[in-house]
Amino acid sequence: MAIKIINAILAMAAGVGGGIALFVILNAVVERLPIRWERRIKPYVFIGPAIFVVLAFLVYPAVLTIYGSFFDARGENFVGGENYVALFTDDAIFRAIVNNLKWMVVVPAACVVVGLAVATLADRLSAKWESVSKSIIFLPMAISFVGASTIWGFVYAFRPEGRPQIGLLNQIVTWLGASPVAWLQARLFNDYMLMIVFVWLQAGFAMVLLSAALKNVPMDTIEAARVDGASERQIFFRVVVPQMFSTIVVVFTTVLIGVMKVFDIVRVMTNGNFDTEVIANRFITEIFTFRQFGRAAAIVVFLMIATIPVMVVNIRRFRAQESL
């Protein structure tokens, strides 16, 4: 055990130190160059490793995957757009796409609404209670998707009528005199049951950023509205929210990016059964269970294409900010 721990520490030190050593050495080399060259080269020395890493571990593999999406299951024969056709003709994959769209519409909006509600309401409490309530909502951010799925397993668990319920929600339902509900199996709303888990995890993140933005809304704009006789509700929707809009966009996009990749919750709770399939889970199934590399590649390329609008918005926003 002792050796293992020493080894662990050494491994970490090697990993961490190796990264830092790279810069120290590169810098030392560049500083020995003539000043004119040093000036020219140094920026690239500073950004070089970061650029190299994204090119090597993101861009290059992505390009290979795009290329692979035009080949068959084993990546041997060119099949043209066949894999992309399958996206829309294969029922299971098509359903995953539709479900992902549902997630993308509902979850970011729900996170913003919940986050905004908590931020606003907690703002009206005493300092101590504001702090406590915010920490509570923030806490699930530290929990893994696998852990959260276990936690919510105990909320949604179903036992047939008349048997002792071990799921909290069904205990409440049966206390109220109704029949227990199979939350994760009912096609009508089971997607939303899974989304609740995601919102539960991420609303705290939204709340913290929105709360910061709320505190930064200038007091005099609110006072002015109050003097003009606006109601609290009018003040909130017409004065406060518009001034927080850029933060709302940031929160929305950040959650949206997470939602598009959602995988663990669905994998653990339903594995895509009962019409709950999503793209990222389907991808894992295609690639590792069915070993359909070409089709899996097409699925993930489609997912990437779906992110392009978000990418464009992000870049535009960045440009706009830069020109301020």
């Binding site: 571990f57 992505a62 995957t65 692979g68 690639i287 993930v300 990418m311």
Partner: peptide
């Protein structure tokens, strides 16, 4: 925004 799964294989 690039999904990291794209890099797996």
């Amino acid at each position: 925004v690039v999904p990291t799964q794209i890099t797996f294989i």
